[in-house]
Amino acid sequence: MAVFTPVPETDAAPLFKALGLGRLKALQGIEGGIENTNFFATTEREGAEHEWVLTLFERLTHAQLPFYLHLMKHLAQRGIPVPEPQAKPEGMRRRPGEDELLHTLRGKPAAIVNRLRGKSVLAPAPAHCAAVGGMLARMHLAGRDYGRSQPNLRGLPWWNETVPVVLPHLATGEAALLQAELAYQNHVAASSAWAALPRGPVHADLFRDNVMFDDEAGAPDAPRLTGFFDFYFAGVDAWLFDLAVTLNDWATDLPTGALDLPRARALVAAYQAERALTQAERDLLPAMLRAGALRFWLSRLWDWHLPRQASLLKPHDPAHFERVLRQRLAQPLTMAALES
């Protein structure tokens, strides 16, 4: 959520007004991510202030974006707490590539969503992990009847394309690990067990900083989850991969990369209370945890060694997910360990 494209308030104000969201009072760039340009926006309408998030998409195109925006709308309408894209009123002119949820600002595809209340919990307890696991399963089930389809754009084909790009920047040991794990994941993807995994829309980036909790509304042993956000890595993929990505962040000890078993058990138990894992999913959990670690190690290597210029840009250190991958290799997490 670095600022690649500066947006003066005078440029943004007409869009907020045209969408019926009120008079723009403040626009502030958001620091934290590395893909899109994001701003917090405050508008005034009928004497009340309203909070929004304005996003300009730096890599995704007008053709790709309807999948994400309409998925968020679909989930919001089914009771999943996600930011809801704001639609054009009837009769508003659409520029080339736009639809009712997708707009254009400063020559870039753009969207405006409501700002979720609450804050991210960066040191989660098992209760936070349970809330995330249960909501993740409900999100997967709510997406089953979503009519649009788009692959996970950071899935296996992207891994195969990107590994050769980053290899020249790596030490011998890192390069060997990256190549070996990519070969293993290609082997897994060719298996009948992988083909049997249930699939549907996935978030694919459900890290601690992409979830909100309202500390004042929930009890310590039952924190109130107020939203999932940042769906712009979503796609149709194995639900197990989404669960593995989530586990690799929420149930991981950040300094070492090792899994925290109480947090992992809480997250998976809550997930299974909503949707029981199939036998193929149970069997492939260790492999998908490795896949999730590879995906984010690789993307962070790419961002670290081939950065883009942007105000507030802070690429994440790729060493963290190298540690996570090495831990998943040394100490595979099985369903038996989670249920013992």
Rank of each mutant, 00 (worst) to 15 (best):
N160C: 12
L136S: 05
P157E: 11
A87F: 13
G118A: 12
G147T: 04
E44L: 11
P168T: 08
F241G: 00
M92K: 10
Q64F: 01
F241T: 06
A142W: 01
R265N: 04
K88Y: 07
Q185R: 06
M139N: 04
E339F: 10
T226C: 06
T226M: 07
F321I: 07
R154D: 03
A195H: 09
L225Y: 13
L178F: 12
K314S: 08
W52R: 02
P8W: 10
L15F: 15
P318A: 15
V166T: 09
P96F: 15
G147Q: 10
L313N: 12
Q185Y: 04
L277P: 02
G134H: 05
P286V: 03
T256G: 03
M335Y: 14
E49F: 12
W52E: 02
T43V: 11
P151N: 01
L313F: 10
M288R: 04
T10V: 15
A127L: 13
T172I: 13
W250Y: 10
H74S: 00
A180F: 04
Q77V: 09
E181F: 01
V245L: 07
P262Q: 10
Q64P: 00
K119C: 02
A13L: 14
E46L: 15
N38H: 10
L60I: 04
P198A: 06
T42C: 08
H103T: 09
F4M: 04
C129F: 07
K73M: 03
V82Q: 02
V268A: 08
K314M: 10
V236H: 02
V236M: 01
A266M: 11
P81G: 04
Y232V: 02
L19S: 07
I34D: 13
A269T: 14
R224M: 14
A219E: 14
